[in-house]
Amino acid sequence: MKKGLIAFLLIVCTVLSVTAQDAREIVKRANDKINGEESSYGIMAMTIIRPEWERTLEFKNWTRGTEFALTLITAPARDKGQSFLKRSTEMWSWNPTISRMIKLPPSMMSQGWMGSDYTNDDILKESSVVDDYTHEIIGEEEIEGRVCYKIKMQAKEDAAVIWGHQIRWIDKKDYLFMKAELYDEDGYLVRTELGKDIKNMDGRLIPSVLELIPEDEEGYKTIVVIEGIEFNIPLEESFFSQQNLKRVR
């Protein structure tokens, strides 16, 4: 009897871990797809929408794995030339008007990037949707005509993430992030992200428009349009250096 119970528990555990593995695998594939397995280089435009005003800024973004990222603002003129560098957990910003490099304190990670609804953490991807969460498939739903896995991602206790949990809808066929709901530690919905306008870019199908809608701010929205993106291009670690932060064009 006792042996039977242990065997049963073992089976339950394996089954659970298999589904967990699957969910994690799905998130990883979707994440790799949009961020590139090795590296990526993208040209993007971001529109910040507020009840009284809106503005658009353009930037280039290089990433290598989850460790390294570099972002350069190319427009508008007043912000042009500003760049941001992330090396593992450290973050630096270069501003040409004051020709100074500034290390961003961790307290600024949750603040809006360039006045948008994206936080510095979002842009520089300090936390990983794959490694910092435990994943679980909680259902299937259709979003914009595509059948999606509905995956609940619970933040790991020791992970440095600002969310309590996330629910993501990932396209079953092409592994696309179609929708995400991000919740704070108390379980309140903080923002919704939508993937739209699916296009073939650099040989893979990805949503080319990302919409970010904060929950508690009426009329606030940020839209990022991917104008061009290349995946797995050769990028050395030395590219993500403080020297290059000032030079990069």
Binding site: R78, D79, S93, I98, I102, M114
Partner: peptide, 16 residues
């Protein structure tokens, strides 16, 4: 002293 922050309509405020 270097000051860095957010300016009007989300522009970057930077000055020394």
């Amino acid at each position: 002293i270097i000051l860095l922050g957010q300016a009007y309509h989300g522009y970057t405020a930077a000055g020394k």
